[in-house]
Every structure is written in structure tokens, then in C-alpha cells.
């Protein structure tokens, strides 16, 4: 049991604080939703009604999509772009998808390589891009969920305000959808930019996300 906790500490730690934060968001969102209901002259809703409404789903999905977009873009952009001095970057001059030897694929696969690394054609292509593709699929899935749930939640509020509901296309072209989308994107892009740039000059002893404390500022692609 102790070994299981130690071997998986990173995932279990983040899974725990994720579930606690999601629960906290649901509780706070429930009270905020009912405050709006009362202010709009409607009756407060039950906990079950809130959990099965589209309000919570929209708020959750809009944050998820931006996080998965952040990782998908970071994974793909760092294939082709480098940042001198950053531990998040490959060394300057190694831009691109690299050779089969560097990537240990095909004839260069080792005895412990995944079976797909020894394959060729579409199977190798899929496995070679599976991390970025999966992040991208979850991004588009979350963005779709945000759009569908956001449309339903927006129209529920419109009816509460005695306003006409919008069609799905009108909602997608409207300010609510893009305000929710872009307010999340801008913060993710700033966070990536900050990580790539601050890690050139700053250190965190013991973290693989940082260069070793004694590494030079010009060292690129060196992790601690």
C-alpha cells in the first residue's frame, strides 16, 4: 500500500485536489446560481436540479477545454519551436520530428519499446502522435460540451429575463460563447509563456520542470 502511494504520488495528489476543487466549485456554484434565481424573481432550485442543469457543466467544460488546448499546443509547438535557455525546450538546432534513431522507432526500437514503435505506416504514425492527438480530441470534446451546455444555460437565463432564446448558431457567433472561451485561453497562453521564459533565469531545486540550480542561463533543454 505504501509503495502504491509512493509510486503514484503525483497522480494521486492531483486527483485528490481536483475532486476537492470540483466539489467546492459545485457547492459555490449552487449558491451563486440560487442567488441569481432569487434576484431574477424565480424560486431557488434544489441541489439535484443544479447538478443536472447546464450551468455547472458549462463552467466546468470551459475550463477543461482551455487546459487541454494548453497542453495540446505546448506538446505540438515544442516539436518545431525552441526557446534558448528554457528547460521546457529542446536544444536549439533540434527542431522537428527528429530521426528514427533519435526516436527509437522501426529498426531502432529496443526490446523494451512499445510494440507500436516497431510497427510502420498508420499504426506508427498514430502512436507517434498519440499524446498530442488525445489532448486535442479532449480539447475539442470539452469545447463542444461548453458550446452545447453554454447554449442551454444561456437560453435558460434569457427566459428568466423575459428575452428571446438564441439558436445554436447565433449562440456560437455571440459574445457569451467567445467571452467564456477567450478569457480562459488568454490565461493559459500567458501561463505557458511565463513557464518557458521564467525558467530560463529562475530555478526550483529538485524539480524536473526546472534546470538544476547550478545550470547556466544559456543551457537549453536541460532538466534538473
Amino acid at each position: 500500500m505504501r509503495r502504491l502511494l509512493r509510486d503514484n504520488g503525483l497522480v494521486l495528489f492531483f486527483a485528490t485536489i481536483f475532486l476537492l476543487a470540483l466539489l467546492g466549485q459545485a457547492v459555490a456554484g449552487f449558491h451563486a446560481f440560487n442567488d441569481d434565481q432569487v434576484a431574477g424573481g424565480a424560486a431557488p432550485v434544489s441541489w439535484t436540479t443544479y447538478l443536472t442543469s447546464s450551468d455547472l457543466g458549462t463552467d466546468v467544460a470551459e475550463n477543461w477545454q482551455s487546459e487541454y488546448l494548453q497542453f495540446a499546443l505546448y506538446i505540438l509547438a515544442t516539436v518545431h519551436l525552441v526557446q534558448r535557455g528554457s528547460p521546457e525546450s529542446k536544444p536549439v538546432g533540434e527542431e522537428g520530428i527528429e530521426s528514427e534513431q533519435d526516436q527509437r522507432i522501426g529498426a531502432h526500437a529496443g526490446h523494451d519499446s512499445p510494440a507500436a514503435a516497431r510497427a510502420s505506416g498508420p499504426r506508427l504514425w498514430w502512436y507517434s502522435n498519440s499524446l498530442g492527438l488525445t489532448m486535442g480530441v479532449i480539447f475539442f470534446g470539452s469545447w463542444t460540451a461548453q458550446a452545447v451546455a453554454g447554449h442551454a444555460a444561456y437560453n435558460a437565463q434569457q427566459l428568466l429575463d423575459f428575452q428571446d432564446p438564441l439558436g445554436f448558431g447565433e449562440y456560437l457567433a455571440g459574445p457569451d460563447f467567445w467571452d467564456r472561451t477567450l478569457q480562459n485561453w488568454q490565461s493559459e497562453f500567458l501561463a505557458i509563456l511565463s513557464m518557458a521564459l521564467l525558467s530560463i533565469y529562475l530555478r526550483q531545486r529538485g524539480s524536473p520542470e526546472s534546470k538544476p540550480v547550478g545550470a547556466s542561463h544559456s543551457a537549453t533543454g536541460v532538466e534538473g
Binding site: N8, W64, A153
Partner: peptide, 30 residues
Amino acid sequence: MRTQLALFVALLTFVGVALTYVVVLGLLHR
């Protein structure tokens, strides 16, 4: 690596089920 594979599958399942739940509720409330 069986525990890691179980956690991997659990994460993808959780995200998939949660997003499906949100989409279905959104479609029902249109």
C-alpha cells in the same frame, strides 16, 4: 505498470463520461 495503466484508463473514462454527461444534459435542456 498495471496500477499506472488502471489510472490511465480511469482518467480517460472519467473525462469521457463527464463530457458526455454535460453534452447530453445540454441537449435535453435546449
